[in-house]
Computed example of a mutant assay.
Amino acid sequence: MSGLGVVRSWTVVYRASLLGFAGEVPYLLVDVELAEQAGLRMIGLLLDGPDTSLREGLPVRVAFEDVAPGTAVPAFTPATGGSS
């Protein structure tokens, strides 16, 4: 997997549904269509936060957020240079 994709939609979460995320609100979740296959989507955190200027089709790339020692989860950040 290339880790590249485009934003299809997004939502800002103001009230965490899981207690473990209560200290993280507000946060931005993006629905990303991955470059490898049309219709192949993944939901993830946008690391740049809820104030990021978003648009449908915004190129993004995977990044990893460390959530515990030795544990990282996939997230996204806007891609630069038109790489997707």
Results as ranks from 00 to 15, higher is better:
51 D>I: 04
55 R>E: 05
33 E>M: 11
12 V>D: 00
44 G>W: 06
20 G>L: 03
31 D>C: 15
51 D>V: 00
50 P>F: 02
61 R>F: 08
9 S>N: 13
79 A>V: 15
21 F>L: 10
15 R>L: 02
48 D>M: 07
77 T>V: 15
76 F>T: 03
25 V>W: 11
14 Y>E: 11
6 V>E: 03
42 M>W: 07
57 G>V: 00
84 S>K: 10
83 S>K: 14
16 A>H: 01
9 S>D: 14
54 L>A: 08
30 V>G: 05
57 G>E: 10
39 G>Q: 12
74 P>E: 00
7 V>W: 00
31 D>E: 12
6 V>C: 06
35 A>T: 07
27 Y>L: 04
32 V>G: 07
29 L>V: 06
68 A>F: 01
13 V>C: 00
47 L>M: 12
63 A>C: 06
19 L>Y: 12
4 L>Q: 09
15 R>C: 03
5 G>K: 02
45 L>I: 03
35 A>W: 04
35 A>I: 05
57 G>C: 00
13 V>K: 00
68 A>D: 02
33 E>P: 14
37 Q>I: 15
25 V>P: 13
50 P>E: 06
7 V>R: 01
16 A>S: 02
21 F>M: 01
67 V>E: 06
49 G>C: 06
26 P>G: 04
79 A>F: 09
33 E>W: 10
80 T>S: 15
31 D>W: 12
24 E>N: 12
83 S>P: 11
51 D>C: 04
19 L>E: 14
20 G>F: 01
72 A>E: 13
25 V>E: 13
46 L>N: 09
48 D>K: 11
74 P>I: 10
